[in-house]
Design a binder for these strands. Structure first.
Lengths: 143, 143
DNA sequence: CTATTTAGTTCGTCACACGAACTATGTCAA
DNA sequence: TTGACATAGTTCGTGTGACGAACTAAATAG
């Protein structure tokens, strides 16, 4: 069962192959709903936050100038809305709309179904082990 | 140590977090060398192949019309070259140049270093286990 | 020898990303 | 107060990347 020589390249290649696979899956499903990857990430971030533009830029690792258009397009589709901050008249906070939240959930569910299918062949114990290992690799993962 | 309830969402979330992390890492390093993700993928595919445009489009999951520009830009930077097929005067095969190969290697190495750093905290045995599990999840992975 | 398929390019359009310049508002300090 | 500076966002010009539709040219089939 244990392959004898899974050296580092193997691991890293595997991780990247998997990451490309997951991204492609997400992008495809998003596209079926006329959304890009970034838009999905945007909605995902807004799921439990109501940040300003700069904060949002940090989450997405984008320049603030890139955000105006992004939010414009999302707003035009009624997925998010700009809320004027009452305390600071320069600032706006971005909030996901009911429609955006719904769309985000639909996509997340569809993705879950597909990735489930990938993972299901693994015995439950292995799934847990994989989850634990992945958690440990993630930064801020358990020491 | 073993968390008791790593349900499916946990696994899938973790896998996606990891995939975003890896993609961001690759994109950042590529950008340091003035390359986009797609260009890196292009060079990667050409590492051990010399496909025609249509074949290349299939590998990248792009439309053929998207490829002309992509290859144009790579060719302008001297990273790839179009080779006229002698047998079929419509066809061209795309070949990576020495320069492209070198650049691709530099980027791959830099990425390896970073991902190594992520993975090194894991004991060797866990690294092997992770590699094996990832391989099993990948399509066409071991039964 | 036409009719069709195949390989690739071109063109128009759009999403996305960037930096530089800009507006408008808030803040600090003399 | 009143500058000087910082902060929040937008706008604009440019480049990459993706698409579909229309096109050229070469190969192939009947």
């Amino acid at each position: 069962m244990a392959n004898q020589a899974p050296d580092l390249p193997d691991l890293i290649d595997g991780l990247f192959q998997l990451s490309f696979l997951l991204q492609a899956c997400l992008a495809r499903i998003a596209a079926e709903h006329d959304l890009s990857l970034v838009q999905v990430r945007l909605l995902g971030i807004l799921r439990d936050r109501e940040p300003g533009m700069l904060e949002l830029a940090r989450y997405l690792e984008l320049e603030k100038s890139s955000l105006s258009g992004l939010v414009d397009r999302a707003e035009n589709r009624g997925l998010v809305e700009r809320i004027q901050s009452p305390s600071d008249r320069r600032a706006t906070t971005i909030r996901v709309t009911a429609r955006g939240r719904k769309l985000s959930r639909v996509i997340a569910d569809a993705v879950r179904v597909e990735v489930d299918a990938l993972v299901q062949p693994l015995p439950k114990a292995d799934q847990d082990r994989l989850a634990a290992l992945v958690r440990h690799v993630l930064p801020a993962g358990p020491a």
